[in-house]
């Protein structure tokens, strides 16, 4: 996928899908990333939402700024769970000379039962 610039975002477009299983390696990294605390449902959902966004949109313009994060946690993701996620562009607008992109991640299990939904507002660099 070529580098995503602001002009490439079309509101309502599905940007990609991801499938990820929370495995022992991932949880071992967690122990280093956030030492001294077991991961809570919200913490895991947040990291998985970012993983979905960043693994689907791998080639981004440098200098983007994560400005706002909304997260709705519906149930905990546990070790061994497989998370199916979809990344969608909700909006892309120029506001006060800032390129404001809102991306949404919806995540569920293989049966379609929701784990979480996330919406990240990113000020796109160019």
């Amino acid at each position: 996928m070529p580098t995503m610039t602001f002009a490439d975002f079309v509101p309502g477009t599905v940007l990609g899908n991801d499938r990820f299983t929370v495995d022992a390696w991932w949880l071992a990294q967690w122990a280093i990333a956030v030492p001294g605390a077991a991961p809570s449902p919200g913490a895991i959902a947040m990291a998985l939402a970012m993983r979905s966004y960043l693994s689907i949109l791998r080639d981004r313009t440098p200098g983007n700024l994560h400005a706002r994060q909304q997260l709705s946690v519906r149930r905990a993701v546990a070790a061994g769970d497989t998370v199916m996620s979809r990344l969608t562009c909700e909006s892309a607008e120029l506001r006060h000379e800032r390129r404001r992109v809102v991306l949404a991640v919806a995540a569920c299990d293989a049966q379609g039962d929701a784990f979480f939904e996330a919406r990240m507002t990113i000020l796109w660099a160019r």
Binding site: V34, A37, A43, H66, A67, R68, Q69, L71
Partner: peptide
């Protein structure tokens, strides 16, 4: 930003039971 947010998740986990912490909405700005 979402790494720093973990300290808030820890605060939530320390305050509420597991069932409460597994169903919530959060809206924050960095």
């Amino acid at each position: 930003g979402t790494l720093s947010l973990n300290v808030l998740w820890q605060s939530i986990a320390a305050t509420f039971d597991a069932a409460t912490a597994a169903r919530l909405d959060l809206d924050i700005r960095f």
